[in-house]
Design a protein around this nucleic acid. Structure first.
Length: 268
DNA sequence: ATAATAACCTGAGGGC
DNA sequence: TGCCCTCAGGTTATTA
């Protein structure tokens, strides 16, 4: 489900938990990407102070520490009535004091629910992440510098969370299309002008997707159960058997084991 | 040190 | 209907 716009949508959708007291957490399945932190089942009556996003991680700050949550490929968070019975893949419930609970669902279990008493931004998984794509730190000069001396393709570079965070397979395909750059270009062949354009297109596409509530391909639903509408605006992703707007049939290849679609005419 | 690729899971969809 | 194969918004661990 989740690239930056979907995680941001989820984050905004669960803001109602701020100020609530977390009475306790029910863990039904602790076997996720990493085991659910051992301390979590014994947490009792702590106040939720803030909900924030860093990269594709959702951070829930409390008076005693912070939860670090990643949605993996198929994870979901939603705030619902505490009377709704859990289903097969509902792995954790965060029981709140106002009759609701925050439920974590994840069929493929590639996500993670971790706990730290310290500042979560210093947590090992978060410490070495690249800049946020919508921040000033992510600009053409920066991307050009990071693209030097690298043999990887430009698509793999922008999906590398140590270079820039938040971009996954959908938005990498879309941004490269709108920037007119071939996904398989070796990153060190990009000019400054191309880097600037790519940064701008990445930012534009992410902002648009956030406004639309993210992209729903199969099963993404925001915290209030609504789908995202950005899939209506995808130019190349998932359109491998169709033609580009210019009339040229789109090409479909694999780059770093990920489905990659591009227009051989519009992208150079 | 850097770059490919294998691995972690479940479910959906297509072909036979 | 069922079985087998491939694929899926991600990221780390292992190998070359």
């Amino acid at each position: 489900m989740p690239e930056l716009p979907e995680v941001e949508t989820t984050c905004r959708g669960i803001q109602s938990i701020i100020g609530c007291t977390l009475e306790h957490v029910i863990v039904r399945q602790k076997q996720l990407r990493w085991p659910v932190s051992q301390e979590i089942p014994s947490l009792k009556n702590i106040r939720i102070l803030e909900v924030a996003r860093r990269a594709k991680y959702i951070l829930i700050y409390t008076t005693k520490g912070a939860f670090i949550i990643h949605l993996g490929m198929s994870g979901r968070l939603c705030v619902i009535s505490n009377k709704l019975a859990p289903e097969k893949h509902d792995h954790l419930d965060f029981i709140l004091n106002n009759g609701t609970l925050l439920r974590y669902t994840d069929p493929r279990r590639f996500g993670a629910v971790l706990w730290t008493k310290d500042e979560p931004l210093n947590f090992s998984l978060l410490a070495k992440l690249g800049p946020e794509p919508l921040s000033d730190a992510f600009n053409g000069q920066y991307l050009l510098q990071r693209a030097q001396n690298k043999k990887t393709t430009i698509k793999q570079l922008i999906m590398d969370q140590n270079i820039v965070v938040g971009i996954g397979n959908i938005y990498a395909n879309e941004a490269l299309f709108t920037a007119n750059i071939l996904p398989i270009r070796q990153s060190n062949t990009l000019t400054l002008a191309e880097c600037k354009k790519l940064v701008l297109k990445i930012q534009t596409i992410l902002k648009q997707a956030i406004l639309q509530g993210g992209t729903t391909l199969r099963d993404f639903l925001s915290a209030d159960g609504k789908p995202g509408y950005f899939s209506q605006k995808l130019f190349v992703y998932g359109r491998e058997d169709e033609k580009c707007l210019c009339g040229t049939p789109l090409n479909s290849i694999r780059v770093g084991q990920r489905a990659t679609v591009y227009c051989p005419s519009c992208q150079k």
